[in-house]
Structures are given as C-alpha cells and as structure tokens.
C-alpha cells in the first residue's frame, strides 16, 4: 500500500465502471476466477525471481508482514478511547495520530474514526472493492468483500444489520461510510454497559472485529 493509497491497494480492477452492461462482474468470487489470478501471480513471481528482482524468501516475508496486523490493534485503540477522554478526542480529530500515540502505525493514507452514540450507529463498507483498515484489523472477512454486502449495506443498512443480529431502535440514525478512496474507517463502538470496573486490557477483549466494522456491538463480557 502506497502513501497515496491507490496503486496496489485494491484487489482487482474497476474496468467495468464505465459501461452499462447488466451485471458486469466487479469481483471474481468463483474458484475458476481465483485460479486464473493465482496463475498470473505464479507467472509474475517466477519471472521476477528469474530476473533476480526478488527472491522467494522476500515474498514469504512480505506475506508475513501483510498478515501480521490483526483485530487486537484496533481493539487496543478502542479500549484506550473508552478509558481516556483526551485520547478519544484526539483520535476522533485524527485517527492516524491517535493510533501512533499507542505505537500503532496506520499504513493507509488516513484513518477516520467514527463514533457510535446513543443517536447514531456507524457502518463501514467499500462498494467499489475491499478498502479496509488492514493495518489495524488485518485482512477483511469474506462477507465484507462479497457483492451482496457491498450492494446492500449502502441501500438497506438496517436490514443488513438485523441479519447480523443487530436490531437498532427506530430512533437511532444509521451512518454508512462507503470507503472507496484514500481514507480508511474504524468504528468506535459504545462502551458496553456494566463494564465500569474493567481496566483497559479487559475492555480490549470485548472489542470484536465486527464491532469495529459496525455490524455488531462489542461483547458485554469476556468470552469464556
């Protein structure tokens, strides 16, 4: 991912945006399509290795780097925001700076943290591809990349949330964030009730991946 966030930051092309053919495939989800992509990657890697531009070890190392971030990073940020109002304010002002206070590096261009309140519930989607705060949450779940989620989250978010098991009161507004350019988004969920006695570490165990995407609320007690 480059600093400007576009070259190589998307998983597939968007060549179909301009035409009006019905059901132009924006994402290849079937096995045959994945196989074709894999063949191209294999061919490219073999060429680059043969020309001495990269080695298999370097590729393995880079795969490790890509897979190293996980939900725990986002959870640490959320838990700190729950216990430290000053940090929370700075985080909402500039997500990247906030994360760096905890020594967490955001690889994407910018991080926008959107705060759930009693009145507003936030939901993240990328309708064009699979933009996701990978440096904080790791790789996105398969449903996040599915065409069904991407199409429906921006059109009937409350119905989608209900299918995830989250039924919002009619008085709660839903703010959907279609993450499609240089920003990346993280939901700051509401601190669960009855957790006043918990410290930051214990709180971070309640912060799930789905709660930071906005399709769920945090756990109310630590998993057994």
């Amino acid at each position: 991912m480059t600093a400007s966030g576009s070259i190589g930051s998307h998983d597939h092309d968007h060549e179909h945006d301009h035409d009006h053919e019905p059901e132009a495939a924006h994402v290849i989800e079937d096995d045959a399509g994945n196989l074709e992509g894999q063949q191209m990657i294999d061919a490219l890697q073999a060429l680059l290795a043969r020309k001495g531009i990269l080695s298999a070890g370097e590729v393995t190392l880079e795969i490790q780097n890509i897979e190293a971030p996980g939900t725990h990073l986002g959870a640490r940020i959320v838990a700190r925001a729950w216990v430290d109002a000053g940090f929370r304010a700075r985080l909402l002002e500039n997500g990247k700076n906030g994360a760096s206070e905890l020594g967490i590096k955001v690889g994407e261009a910018q991080l926008v943290v959107v705060e759930n309140t009693a009145e507003v519930h936030n939901l993240i989607v990328c309708t064009l591809c699979s933009c996701y705060p990978r440096s904080l949450l790791g790789q996105p779940p398969s449903w996040y990349i599915s065409k069904a989620y991407r199409a429906r989250a921006v059109r009937e978010p409350a119905v989608v949330l209900a299918e995830f098991g989250l039924t919002l009161p009619p008085s709660t507004g839903v703010h959907v964030h279609d993450s499609n350019a240089d920003m990346r988004f993280l939901v700051l969920p509401l601190r669960p009730p009855g957790t006043e006695h918990l410290d930051e570490d214990a709180l971070s165990a309640l912060v799930t991946r789905d709660s930071m995407i906005g399709v769920a609320l945090p756990l109310e007690r630590a998993p057994a």
Partner: peptide, 22 residues
C-alpha cells in the same frame, strides 16, 4: 441523505451515507 439516494426506500430521515469524492 439516504432518502435522497433511495427515494421511497429510506428507513429514516436520520440515515445518511458518507463517501469520499475527489
């Protein structure tokens, strides 16, 4: 406003969509 994006379908006047645009 969701009601502007999806006329007749939106659940609430309080629902919004945010998107980055160049």
């Amino acid at each position: 406003a969701m009601k502007d994006l999806w006329p007749g379908e939106a659940r609430s006047d309080r629902d919004f969509l945010y998107m980055e645009i160049y």
